[in-house]
Nucleic acid binder design. Structure first.
Lengths: 225, 225
DNA sequence: ACCCGTTCTCAGCCGGCGTTCAGGCCGGTG
DNA sequence: CACCGGCCTGAACGCCGGCTGAGAACGGGT
């Protein structure tokens, strides 16, 4: 099991490296965010342990960059302060777990093991649902061979729907994932954007990929309508 | 998303239930370990939130029992003290994450969402009774290969019946679980909805899955009629 | 400074859903 | 066989959730 440790505090890094190696892990250490991201993309690791406060590039950004690149290696975040917002933000940028300093070595290993046990699921670079295709990295979308122009909001809504194709998604769930984490405006905005999407990806093709489930939310047909 | 909350502190349980429901989760509460384990095995939940200190059967044992039975529903443990040993032990009995009291609601939801996000793989997630199938996540229902369109109320009624297939269910029991907790209207509503269901899932197929037990209530045949 | 695209708000329409009610039905009982 | 209480069902209706078009606020680009 190969672990990448991204941590600028040399004392802590050395201690963790020694401990993890003693426990049978192969450990590589990166001292700042940029180097960490580089190494993470270079070698294939089974898990990444990553500090949030880092010179060069924050842990959040490393994490977000990896996820955006389609890398779903389990990430355990180390946060200095135990502010709740940090935790929530860490999990939402795509971290799988976090640990607030100070922490004990035992706990770190237990969490790491739990992460590894779950494993990572590989994500394809391009999302598909029926004849709907969507390339998150390039920000482009197609229905069949026809490319569809979408505004940023429309795009991330469609991305969320495709990632969870087949599931019934409540409006609040959609709001939490597609809009800002703490959006307190009119939830009607979801209806508006669903409407816009339908007009772009359904109506011109005479099909209906996005279904309404009353009192529940919306569902994208995994077979493309 | 259906959550099972195993918590003996009635205040906390009520508060969490209210919050989670407002966030669009369906929540069932069990007040002790034994009941919790029973319900966990009975219904198929998307996640379980489980206190460690419980009357009857500790959270550890509930967790271990589920894992031993091959049930890998994501489990979030609530520990009273933040002793490190608790945390390590929790993760090692097979819990997926833990949270030490006192915790804030925001964090709980963030963690739950993170769990659900990755826990959604490799679960049957579909309820069955004979040739009746029902997918709570997608909000879809089938009899054999034919998909059945159901209104929200009809759907949750059928969901409840299938989860407790084989049991005789009184009208008041059905009212408590399918309708709002404090519904004070005409109980005849249950008869109305059972009738609608029969017309949709029984009549067109010439079978009868839902039986009436006079003076008692209704019963769904676990073999589909 | 102006234009344009995007995001978001608001109010009104519409249809479907939940609920009630009354009358008919059926099974059980004396 | 007649009565009675619980079950079934069709019709009616009010309400609420979802859809939409118009327009305000905002910001980036020229």
């Amino acid at each position: 099991m190969r672990i990448l440790l991204i941590e600028d505090d040399t004392h802590l890094a050395a201690a963790l490296r020694r401990g993890l190696q003693a426990d049978g892990f192969a450990v590589d250490v990166a001292a700042d965010g940029t180097e960490g991201l580089w190494q993470a993309q270079e070698g294939s690791y089974d898990a990444i342990v990553c500090d949030i406060m880092l010179p060069g590039m924050s842990g959040y950004r490393v994490c977000a960059a990896l996820r955006a690149a389609g890398d779903w290696t389990p990430i355990l975040m180390l946060t200095a302060k135990d502010g709740e917002l940090d935790e929530a933000e860490a999990l939402d940028t795509g971290a799988d777990d976090f640990l607030s300093k100070p922490f004990s070595y035992v706990v770190l290993v237990a969490r790491l093991r739990a992460l590894l046990r779950r494993g990572s699921r590989a994500r394809p670079a391009v999302l598909e649902a029926g004849d709907l295709r969507l390339d998150p990295a390039a920000h482009r979308a197609w229905r069949g061979d026809v490319e569809i122009a979408l505004s940023p909001r429309q795009f991330s809504l469609l991305e969320f729907l495709i990632r969870r194709a087949g599931d019934a998604l409540s409006k609040s769930e959609i709001l939490d994932h597609v809009w800002d984490f703490a959006f307190d405006g009119d939830p009607n905005i979801v209806e508006v954007y669903v409407g816009q999407l339908r007009r772009k990806i359904d109506e011109p093709f005479g099909r209906s990929a996005i279904g309404t489930i009353r009192l529940v939310g919306y569902r994208l047909d995994p077979d493309g309508g």
